[in-house]
Each structure stands twice: as structure tokens, then as C-alpha cells.
Write a protein that binds this DNA or RNA. Sequence first.
DNA 1: CTAGGGTTAG
Length: 598
Amino acid sequence: MKRPLTLIAKARGSPVRAYLSASALPETRRRTPEWGGAALSRNPLAAGTRAGAAPPWLAVQAALMSLVDSRVRSDWWDSPSSLFLQFDEPIDSKVCRHLIRRYTGQGKHLHSVFVFVQMQRVGVRPDSFTFAPVLKSVARLCLREMGRSVHAYAAKANFDGDVYVGTSLVNFYGGCLLIGDAHQVFDEMGERNSVSWNALITGYTHNRKFAEALDLFREMQADGVEPTEVTMVGVLSACAHLGALSLGKWIHEYIDCHGLSLNEFLGTSLVDMYAKCGAVMEMEKAFVAMRIKNVYTWNALISGFAMNGRGEAALQAFSRMMMENLKPDGVTFLGILCACCHEGLVDEGKRYFRIMKDEFGLCPGIEHYGCMVDLLGQAGLFSEALHLVQNMDLKPDPIIWRTLLGACRTHRNVPLGRYAARKLLELEPTNADNYVLLSNIYAQDSMWDEIAQLRAMMNQKALAKVAGCSSIEIGNAVYEFIASDCLKPEVHDLLDDIRKELKQVGYAANTGLALYDIEEEEKESSVAFHSEKIALAFGLIRSPPGSTLRIVKNLRVCQDCHVFFKLVSLVYKRGISLRDRNQFHHFAGGSCSCRDHW
DNA sequence: CTAGGGTTAG
């Protein structure tokens, strides 16, 4: 139960600690308590009790506030338990509903859930309007069992036929990574509208089931339900993750033709979709076309440039953003540091890392340190990198150590590599990638005994590597290939032919790292049939001559494939864009946009 | 009075 909580919290950008307790209700970490200990006059709810125009929800609020005043408890709002412990009067369900709405609206999700629970305790019956906000809070906290019992309660009270309640339930299950349950609730809903469809589709994208999200989008249309802006945000996000450029372009046209409003959400999704499909020009056009932009939009643009190897454009975008007086946030600097990293701009990176704290008062997160470690490590500045890791005010996570280990491989630094690997395996002993990475370092220096030891450790733990998988979009279809896949003879032969041809311009297979790979399957297929090469060969056969080949890979590209792709772009005069796990490689005329730095 | 949305290291 703990793990999915972290996952969803990370996905939603609000780290939480979820422990239900009556005495202490910890809140989302980033939020400073607004009402805690403060004078009651600072309570926004108290506004209505002052003289002047009264807001519409005044009646209930005023009643609440006078109750509060009579009890003289200024911390009342921060500890809703006092509502139930101290008041002799029977608690009204309207009061509870408002309380829950306010708490959820303020991001005080545990308070909201707590009030709901207390309502059951003292026998106050919620109405159908109470379920939506409490389910939102339950979803945010990823309290799965709690959500299930809320669901059961709603069913018992016959509220589950309500579209609002049903849609909230779909959203809850989807948000807690229980997409099967979300779909089931959706199927059983008596009444559905576009909002319910949207909840289900975004649920699928949250659960990283992108292809299924697109299927649902088709189903929705077949059902005669018009997509809305929110639908398109979800669908574009799925396109972005899949690298499905042609569908993304189709959505863009649909938006224009059907007069969907290009608001911040939709515009940002478009920018991000083009960025993640490697279509930098279209990304810029989509960005320029937007009327209203906010920090999300700029962040999508900046990281879009960064991941496409356009570091200088990312930095320029940042200065334009400054000129428009927009306040950058942590994500902005993540994009910037990432850009510096890909460009190898060590001093620039250090400068931005400094000004993010000094000028903008932003506290660097582990991700920012991760970028810095990568930046320093890839530049070969090992003592600085290590110093940063050992002196940062956050506990280094596995990614930090793996980044350092990766830099050690690039620069063949065995001693530091051993150290980083030891730290890494302490934290993450069951991740096969870690062993492979260290084994690659040993392989470079022909340290066979160490490699044998690693192999034994892996066998003992029965660790398996993630299979390499590449996809290529041709026309309106996406084709997927797995390394060591059964090859079509035509593709196999073509790969042979290509290899022969490339050898004439100086290609020599770089199998060094793969030969000592630990996975049996990998050894058999070796680098010659890495999934991206198969996709490339397939693309050369099937796509119209001269068109750009777009390939998406789930892992990072290996040295050999990188050289291979560069030469194919030269010899066959084809533009190729390869999306890595990390970034884009745009190949043309024998060179790559990453300048061999990745 | 209620439901659905965008950016994020390695």
C-alpha cells in the first residue's frame, strides 16, 4: 500500500504522508498551514461575518463561524476532531458537507476524509453532494481501502446511480492505479456524459495505458459523445507518451476545425505532444499560436527544447520567459539544467543552479541534484560530482548513484564506479540495470572475475532485465519490435545488407559491451538485432523514400546503434529521429543532434 | 452547492 502512494503522489506533484489519526493530521508537505494558530480574522471563511456584501454560502458559514467563536478555539480548523469532541449540538450534515468541500478545496485532504469518517461515527448521513469532494481527497491520498468503503457506502445509500458520484468514483479508482475498477464502475454507470468519459480516459493515461486510452477515445466517438478540451488533453498526453505524431496532428486539426478553445491546458498539451514526438518546429508554432501561456506552457517548451538537443534554444526561451515577468518554478530549472547537461555547459549549469536558490528562492529537489551530478560526471569532474553527492542536504537516492555510475562508465573510472555501485546495490539490490551498468565498467577493463561474480549474484537473485522495445509510426499504424524478436526474413536480410554497406564507410560493430552482458537473450541476439535497428530496417522498407523515420525506444540507445544510425542517415540520405528513454537523437547527414553526448 | 485537464533528473 505504501508504494503506490509514493507513485501517485509523485505523479500528482504533491508529496503526502498519509496516516489517519485523530490527534495529529499531517498535511501536504509543501503547503504552509494557512489557518494554523492564526487569528480567526485571517480565516477566509470569517470574511462573511464582517460587514459588507455577503457571499452566497454565507448562511452556513456564518453559523459555523459563530459556533467557532463561541468555543474560542483558534486551531479549530486544523483539528476537525474538536468539531465532534467539543460540540454538544447535533452535527448538521450541511455543516459537514461544507467543511469537507472547503478542506478538499484547500488541499487539506486528510481533514476532509476525517470529517467524513466522523460523520459515520456520530451518525450524520451524507448526501450525494458530499461524495465528490471526499472521493477527490481520498484519491489524492491514494487511500484505496477508504475509497472502496466510500464506494460501498454510496452504493448502500443508492447514490451510485448519480453521474457525479459515478464519475468521482471512476476518477478515484483511476487515480489510485486501480484502472480495472475504474472501468468497471464506468461500465455499470446508468448515465454517462463527456465528463465521465474524460475521467476514464485520463484514468488510463495516469495508469500509463496509453494505447488503451486512445482506444477509448475512439469508443467515445463511436458512442456519439463529443470530445471536449479535457478529452483532448488526455488523448494528447497519450500521443506524447507513445510518440504518435500523426494522431497528434489529427487532434490538432480537430481542435482547430471544431473550435475547441486553445486554453492553457490544451495548448500546453499540444506543445508537449510535439516536443515528445520530436517535432520541434511544430512545437514552436503551437507555442506561438497560444494566446494565454502560463508557467506550465513555458516549462513544456523549455524541456521540449532540452530533450530535443536544442539547449541554446531552451536557454533563450528562459530569458524570454524572464522578460515576460513570469516566475519560474522548480520544473523550469529542471528543464534548464537538463539543457545544460545535454549541451555540456558546466559553468552555465552551475550558474543556474545557484540563481535558482539565490535569486528565485527555490529549494533544489533531488531531481535538480541529479542533473548537476550528471552534468559534472559527464564532464569528468568526478571530485566535484562526488562532493555534491556527499554534501547535498537530501539523502542520495538510487538514481543519483546510478547517474554517477553511468558517468564512471563513460570515463572508465573503475574505483569510483565500485564505490557508487556499492551504494547503489545497498539501496536497490534487485534492479538488474545496476548490475549491467557495473559489469559494463568492468568489461571495458577486461575484469572477468568481477563480471563472473556479478553474474552469479544476478543468477542467485533471479533478476531479469527489461527487454528493449522500439516502435515506429508509418502512415497511421504503429509497429513495435522487441530485441531478439523473430525477424521477418526481409528485415533480417536488409539489416545484413545495410551492415555490409556501412562497413564500406568505416563501420565496425561495437559489441564490446553487449558480449559481456548478463542476460542470455541479449548475448544471443547481440547488438546486431537491437530493437531500434530492426525498427529502422523495417522503416526503410515500408516508408516513402525521403521521409523522416521516427523511432521510439523504451531504453537508452547503445553506442553501436548510435554509430549505426548516424551512418544510415548519411548513406541512405534519410532523416531519423530516435526517442530514447531520456532524450531525442535527430540524425542527419552522418551526425546526431546530441553531438555524441548522452 | 457536486464530476474530468498540462510541464518534472537518470
